[in-house]
C-alpha cells in the first residue's frame, strides 16, 4: 500500500540483472510540476516508474536514459519552453527543468 519506493525498485531491478538508469530533477524554474530531487527509474527495455514532470518530458528522459545505459556516461539534460525542441518535448506549464541521468552500475 505504501507509496512506491523508486530507489528500492532501482536496486531490486539491478539486483535482478536488469540494466537500470536513474533520472533526478536537479533544478527547476517557473511552474515546474515536480520538485528538485524527484526521480524516474528506467530499465534497458524502456520500462519506467516515477516522474520528473507531470508526464510532459518523461518520454524524452527515457530516450536519454537508454543512451546513458549504453554509454555509461551520465548526462545533464534540460527541458523547457526556451528549447528548440519545445514543441516536441516542452513543458506545457511554461516551466523549465534540468534532469541528471545516470546508470546504476
Amino acid at each position: 500500500m505504501a507509496q512506491e519506493d523508486l530507489l528500492a525498485t532501482a536496486a531490486s531491478w539491478r539486483g535482478q540483472g536488469r540494466k537500470v538508469a536513474l533520472a533526478t530533477v536537479t533544478e527547476t524554474w517557473g511552474s515546474a510540476p515536480r520538485p528538485v530531487g524527484s526521480n524516474l527509474v528506467i530499465d534497458g527495455e524502456g520500462n519506467f516508474l516515477g516522474s520528473v514532470s507531470g508526464g510532459c518530458v518523461e518520454g524524452a528522459v527515457v530516450a536519454e536514459a537508454l543512451d546513458v545505459i549504453e554509454s555509461g556516461k551520465p548526462k545533464l539534460v534540460s527541458f523547457g519552453v526556451a528549447d528548440e525542441t519545445a514543441w516536441e518535448v516542452g513543458l506545457s506549464c511554461g516551466g523549465k527543468i534540468s534532469v541528471y541521468v545516470e546508470r546504476v552500475e
Binding site: 530507489l7 536496486a11 536513474l22 546508470r103 546504476v104
Partner: peptide, 14 residues
C-alpha cells in the same frame, strides 16, 4: 550510481 552506494542509501532510509 554504484549499486553498493544505492544499497547503503536504501539501508539508511529503511
Amino acid at each position: 550510481m554504484k549499486l553498493a552506494l544505492l544499497n547503503a542509501l536504501n539501508e539508511e532510509r529503511a
